[in-house]
């Protein structure tokens, strides 16, 4: 196996233009899979020395660009993430355990695209875009379009994730990530990423993504839009959870049954909205 350590994005992209080449980001997943003989890349391109991938920056418009090599711990503690953008830092702080959070990166996690991972629903709820760079140049995709299927993304061979871009969240919105897992540090049985804004009793911003209940995060923008401007009472929440439930495609696995996921996901959504409303009313 060949090991390459480029120090620029261009060099990294160039190094990736080979058969069976893989990016090594934090190594939290890839190295474990190599040890388990599940993958055997012929060329490993370490992104460790690419300084441009390691920064996070708040832009003048309030959007935040997070380099692909930012560690989960850094994202969990990222003060540039504000208001509803906090959904991402909340999720980052709930990933696995401190050693993994010190090691794993947002780019690596997105590229692996485990549907039970914590970033995909948080990115979906934050309306994030994923910036990709390859030999053909750069492109950005919304999270919804990036996470394609079970462990499958829109990344083309030879392409790498450069950054994750969170748009500005309206002032006063709250972001939260609610995770149900068997034990501390496990992957989610089901999770809910929420960005909520309330003006008085009226809902001013609503984004709900359900994780770990299908190949990709589930959002119902249509229903979210319909609910804007009105109160967010039991019947409105029910409309949303019913719609979300239609979009779930969970499987039975060792963490839980598909039946249970269908049963618990709407309950988690209700709980997350109730807690966010309480939190927002406390701060107003």
């Amino acid at each position: 196996m060949e090991f390459i350590r480029p120090d620029s994005i261009d060099a990294a992209v160039a190094a990736l233009q080979a058969e069976n080449a893989a990016c090594l980001a934090g190594g939290a997943t890839l190295v474990a899979m190599m040890n388990a003989d599940l993958v055997a890349p012929e060329r490993l391109v370490s992104l460790r020395d690419v300084a441009a991938l390691r920064t996070a920056m708040r832009q003048p418009d309030g959007s935040v660009v997070i380099g692909a090599m930012r560690r989960h711990r850094e994202t969990a503690e990222e003060t540039d993430l504000r208001d509803g953008q906090r959904v991402l830092s909340d999720a980052a702080g709930q990933i696995a355990n401190p050693p993994v959070r010190n090691m794993g990166t947002i780019g690596g996690s997105c590229a692996f695209a485990d549907p039970a991972a914590d970033y995909p629903p948080a990115l979906a709820a934050a309306d994030a875009r994923i910036a990709l760079v390859g030999a053909e140049g750069r492109r950005t995709l919304p999270a919804d379009a990036f996470f394609v299927d079970w462990y499958e993304t829109a990344l083309e061979p030879g392409e790498l994730i450069e950054s994750v871009i969170l748009p500005p969240a309206p002032a006063g919105t709250a972001g939260s990530y609610t995770k149900l897992a068997r034990v501390a540090g496990d992957f989610a049985i089901a999770s809910v990423a929420l960005v909520l804004g309330m003006e008085g009793d009226a809902c001013s911003h609503l984004a709900v993504a359900v994780g770990a209940c299908g190949p990709a995060p589930v959002r119902r923008r249509d229903v979210e839009t319909e609910l804007l401007g009105g109160g967010l009472g039991d019947s409105e929440i029910r409309r949303l959870t019913d719609a979300l439930a239609d979009g779930l495609d969970p499987v039975d696995d060792v963490r839980a049954s598909a039946d249970y996921r269908r049963r618990v996901a709407p309950r988690l959504v209700r709980q997350a909205i109730a807690e966010a409303k309480q939190c927002l009313s406390g701060t107003q």
Binding site: R182, V183, V254
Partner: peptide, 23 residues
């Protein structure tokens, strides 16, 4: 330990979960 017929399906600490100090 979950079995599919005779076969153990969760022979790893990722799939088999014992409590840790956090639990």
């Amino acid at each position: 330990m979950v079995f599919d017929g005779p076969r153990l399906v969760n022979p790893s600490m990722m799939d088999y979960k014992a409590p840790t100090s956090l639990d």
